[in-house]
Design a protein around this nucleic acid. Structure first.
Ligand SMILES: Nc1ncnc2c1ncn2[C@@H]1O[C@H](COP(=O)(O)OP(=O)(O)OP(=O)(O)O)[C@@H](O)[C@H]1O
Length: 744
DNA sequence: CGGGCGGCCATTTTT
DNA sequence: TGGCCGCCCG
């Protein structure tokens, strides 16, 4: 069967051109919602069903694992059959797969560990310290930024030295040591996965030949967010047959901060001089109103080529703009709207709330819980970031790769085995001198020069790991191994013995990890899953509202979208407001957010917001002003929004006098004290409570919350804070200078 | 050596 | 808000 109806169904002319392109390099450039992902997916289906390509000749790159999985399912539903042979994955997964098969060539063992951000930062910290540098001056975070930027642009030590400025040589030394430690630990960081895969292809002709022959068709989604190393990977693989199909939208490039380089799009034509360009202009997702708003925001970017994008879905409803007193009121308003939409037949799973920073989810979660709205937070504090999960996985990694330095340090003394700083220093010394890994030094435990107690602990640890290694090489499943780790290491016993609610939660999480382990045949695939599965990948079939950052929202779509916290300093974020290029990236992020909505878009901001314990007054985001006023339907919950830009005088803004009544009816107990402290701070008055000589266990009376007992005092003078546990069991924290308290 | 506590810090976005 | 460091006591 050749050109097939199901594969071409639901495509416009331009889309069909792209899908059925006869081969050679193709670049699809198109705005949001124009069907880029659909085209890419259906092209895979077309290649297979028309017999042009077999599934095993397909390499498709997506931005997240979840997108990969969905694409695979979609292709299978179009052409049937088993899709196992296709490689549809993220860059990182694809590179990892190649590296596992060829690790020895690169000087690694096949069982190498993958270091995520935090593992890598920890190792960088070790490298900084062992260079005799101060981690206050050379912060691991900043150093990691420099190193990662160099790696992801395929640079080496020279680039690190250069971006290190006057301390270039120091950063260079750190960089060198970090890489040495990685190699010694048989570990790669995220950037290494890409860089090493490139080097593998570059340096080994036979490997390159193999993969070039194998992947006759290479397709890349979200091309605008590839970095130099990823791009090099694509070019290396695609060089021979040049069947490279890339889709992207430079207006949706939002990862420049981590090395993504949208100029890869422009360079595509240079790399493949005979490439064909396909432009898609019809948006099938959003109403014209939403599209107009998005187009007019993004038009403010200077460094951009204008682009046409239209929709025939009709104007739809206006975009609502809501002004709230504070973030609590904003969240309650979102909750009310969600319930309202629900009664109009829109299901929870068709709605999403998007924000700039993860920290904003908390208040929303509280409001949703209070309104019994089912919700899911996508991303945020990830499951795999929890301490107990990291600890358990560190044990598992030790089993797979005993040379793993970061994992060793993590668990050598968890639970306590009497190994302190002193013993660790001795181990590190021995490992340096004898050029063996930390774990291997344990063979010579009596030569390390550590206390008897530490020797015992170390011996115990060594037996534990080697016993587990035996089990692993005997082919025990990850589930069994995990069980053995928990039991034999004493980790479970440690948690069980303390009987706290916290430990119970940790045990539950570990239980969850065990069920993930049960889904995997071997240790390697389990660890791989844990290393590369990001929070965004968690499945979300349930009928719940989604909460996520704007970054996580890329590529998704919802009927109703709430964009919250549109305040100067938050969005655009204060860290981006100085550099024009950073600000443009924020604007693209706004464009991405707006264009996630199909039917209804609601944006909102709060006049005050509590950040780092203190209140901040917010100005409406410039992005709001960049949306034509006639597309907005303004609702002022506060009565005194200072949103008096000329564009908005037409709406029914209440006068300041009205606010004296202060009866924004929806406010409940949560916002009242908020507004009270706002008033206080505005008047710059102190309640004097910091001078009452309060101490822990004093009983106090709070003007709004009633009687309670002080459980904690910190800070002094005007900065004194108290934690008070009220009679109803609620615990709250206050800045005393602003709190109406009396001592009882 | 280990645990607990106070105080200081910084605090964007993530494969 | 929490993560981390330094300090103190058992
Ligand atoms: N020809 C078409 N007819 C009807 N619907 C279409 C057509 N093409 C795409 N769509 C729909 O439009 C929506 C957006 O498509 P898709 O996600 O592929 O766009 P995209 O360009 O990848 O978007 P973005 O870049 O914003 O993530 C999807 O719901 C898709 O099913």
């Amino acid at each position: 069967m050749n050109s097939n109806s199901s594969v071409l169904a639901g495509l416009n002319e331009q889309q069909a051109v792209a899908v059925t392109h006869q081969g050679g390099p193709v670049l699809v450039i198109a705005g949001a919602g124009s069907g880029k992902t659909r085209v890419l997916t259906q092209r895979i289906a077309h290649l297979i069903s028309s017999g042009i390509s077999s599934p095993s000749q397909i390499l498709a790159i997506t931005f997240t694992n979840k997108a990969a999985q969905e694409m695979r399912e979609r292709v299978i539903s179009l052409v049937g059959g088993v899709g196992e042979a296709m490689w549809i994955s993220t860059f990182h997964s694809a590179c990892l797969k190649m590296l596992r098969s060829n690790a020895e060539r690169m000087g690694y063992k096949a069982s190498f560990s993958i270091y995520d951000d935090r593992d890598s930062r920890r190792l960088i910290e070790r490298a900084i310290i062992s260079n005799g540098l101060d981690i206050k001056r050379f912060t691991p975070r900043a150093t990691q930024g420099i190193i990662s930027a160099a790696k992801s642009s395929l640079g080496g030590i020279d680039e690190v030295i250069e971006s290190g400025g006057i301390y270039g040589n120091k950063f260079g030394a750190i960089f060198r040591e970090y890489n040495e430690r990685l190699l010694a630990a048989n570990a790669m960081d995220f950037d290494d996965l890409i860089v090493n895969a490139c080097n593998l292809l570059k340096n080994f002709e036979d490997v390159r030949d193999y993969y070039q022959e194998r992947f006759r068709h290479i397709l890349i989604d979200e091309y605008q967010d590839t970095n130099a190393a990823q791009n090099a990977f694509v070019l290396l693989l695609g060089n021979k047959y040049q069947n490279v199909f890339a889709v992207g939208d430079s207006d949706q490039s939002i990862y420049r901060f981590r090395g993504a380089d949208p100029s890869n799009i422009g360079d595509f034509e240079k790399a493949f001089p005979n490439s064909d360009i396909v432009v898609l202009e019809q948006n099938y997702r959003s109403s014209q109103t939403i599209l107009d708003a998005a187009n007019s925001v993004i038009a403010k970017n200077q460094t951009r080529k204008p682009k046409r994008l239209w929709s025939d879905k009709g104007n739809g409803s206006l975009i609502s703009l809501t002004i709230a007193m504070n973030e609590y009121e904003e969240a309650r308003w979102v909750a009310r709207e969600i319930l309202r939409f629900k009664t109009h037949g829109i299901s929870y799973s068709d709605m999403a709330v998007m924000y700039r920073t993860n920290g904003q989810s908390r208040v929303l979660e509280e409001a949703f819980a209070g309104s019994s709205i089912p919700y899911r937070v996508i991303g945020g504090t990830r499951f795999f970031d929890r301490q107990e999960i990291r600890d358990t996985l560190a044990y598992m990694r030790m089993v797979a790769n005993p040379d793993d330095e970061v994992s060793f340090e993590r668990v050598i003394n968890t639970p306590r085995r009497g190994i302190g700083e002193k013993a660790m220093a001795q181990i590190a010394l021995y490992s340096r001198v004898h050029r063996i890994s930390l774990f291997k030094t344990l063979k010579y435990v009596d030569q390390l020069g550590v206390s008897k107690k530490a020797q015992n602990g170390l011996g115990e640890f060594r037996m534990l790991i080697s016993h587990l290694e035996d089990q692993a090489s005997a082919g025990e499943s990850p589930k069994i191994l995990l069980e053995a780790v928990l039991e034999k290491s004493g980790y479970r016993a440690m948690l069980e013995s303390d009987h706290s609610v916290e430990s119970e939660g940790r045990l539950e999480n570990i239980g969850e990890l065990a069920s993930i382990a049960a889904e995997h045949e071997d240790l390697e695939s389990f660890l791989e899953h844990c290393a590369l599965t990001s929070a965004v990948d968690e499945s979300g079939e349930m009928t719940s509202v989604s909460l996520m950052t704007l970054h996580s929202a890329k590529g998704l779509e919802f009927k109703n979208v709430f964009l919250v916290g549109l305040e100067e300093g938050l969005f655009p974020h204060s860290r981006t407001m100085e550099e024009a290029l950073d600000l443009e990236e924020e604007r693209r992020l706004c464009y991405v957010g707006i264009t996630r909505a199909k039917d209804n878009l609601a944006i909102s901001y709060a006049l005050t917001r509590t950040q780092w314990g203190s209140q901040r007054e917010g100005m409406p985001s410039r992005f709001i002003h960049e949306i034509p006023a006639e597309l907005l339907d303004k609702v002022d919950l506060t009565g005194f929004a200072n949103f008096d830009q000329s564009a908005f005088v037409s709406t029914e803004r209440r006068t300041f006098r009205d606010t004296q009544s202060f009866n924004y009816s929806t406010s409940t107990e949560i916002s009242a004290p908020q507004s009270m402290s706002t008033e206080d701070s505005l008047k710059n008055e102190s309640t004097g409570a910091q001078n009452l000589g309060l101490a822990v266990n004093d009983t106090v009376d709070h003007a709004r919350w009633g009687v309670g007992r002080i459980t904690k005092i910190e800070g002094k003078g005007d900065d004194m804070r108290a934690e008070i546990r009220f009679k109803d069991g609620v615990t709250k924290r206050f800045l005393l200078a602003m709190t109406p308290l009396s001592k009882l």
